[in-house]
Amino acid sequence: MIEFLKNLDRRWIFLLMLLSVAIPILLQTQFEETPSKLSIAVFDQLEKLEEGDKILLAFDFDPGSEGELGPMATTFVRHCCEKKLKMYFMALWPVGEQMIVDNIARVIKADFPELVYGTDYMNLGFKAGNEGVIKVVLTDMRQLYTTDAEGTAIDEIPMMQGVDNIKAMDLMINISAGYPGTKEWVQYAVTRYPDKITLVAGCTGVQAPLLYPYIPQQLPGLLAAIKGAAEYEKLVMDKYGKRDADGNMDEEGKYFEGRRRMGPQLVAHVLMVLLIVVGNLIFFAERRREKRQ
């Protein structure tokens, strides 16, 4: 048995991983989420805002991390729409602009068609330069952004009147998949102007532990990986989800993506734990055998 497991072809492990993710997806299993303090902090930061307040949404991710960050992006946009905030989208990642366009179509155009481009939301699009872009938008956005992503002159956009830089924003959200992302926004924007810029973020699992030293002084709220997305989704939908006459949730679909993804997450995590345990059992059994010999 030990010999068999020791020499197990790794493709069997791949197959186990595939099944542990595929089966819960096919069965569409879902679990109840209990929001953590950090997710509640993110939710509260948005809740504090008033109708018409300005919010910057920086989408610094691409399809490579959409599995984790897509649900956050969708829920953030929904939350902003429900709060009737003025949304300014921008991206430091070349593909980030496509993520913005996708979410505008998915949430704003589909469910909030009354919102008007240029008055309620606008897309500044992508600019090259990583932290160099952050430095410019801190002082004078117009040096880089002469038009929005659609090619309209920036001064012709009503909601850009009186906005010279991102210090005019009441809150900033960053959805981050790596460099440049939340770390750079904290370093270059928040740390420089702690009284004027408040940032909350959603990030990938890889980045999350690295950002904890900034919490809460430099980063009051953080959605960490898909679990953070699921928790935030619950908070937003519990408050804003459409309900039937009996008070039951009458919505499904795109605003449940994070929670749906927690099903495969659970099974795959248990598999990971089992793999480590079995791997160690083999190791110790072997070691004992060697000692005996």
Binding site: V21, G205, Q265, A268
Partner: peptide
């Protein structure tokens, strides 16, 4: 732990 969590979510979206 967090890296594993992230990687699995990326696989989930492809299978979805």
């Amino acid at each position: 732990g967090y890296t594993v969590m992230g990687r699995i979510a990326l696989l989930a979206i492809r299978l979805e």
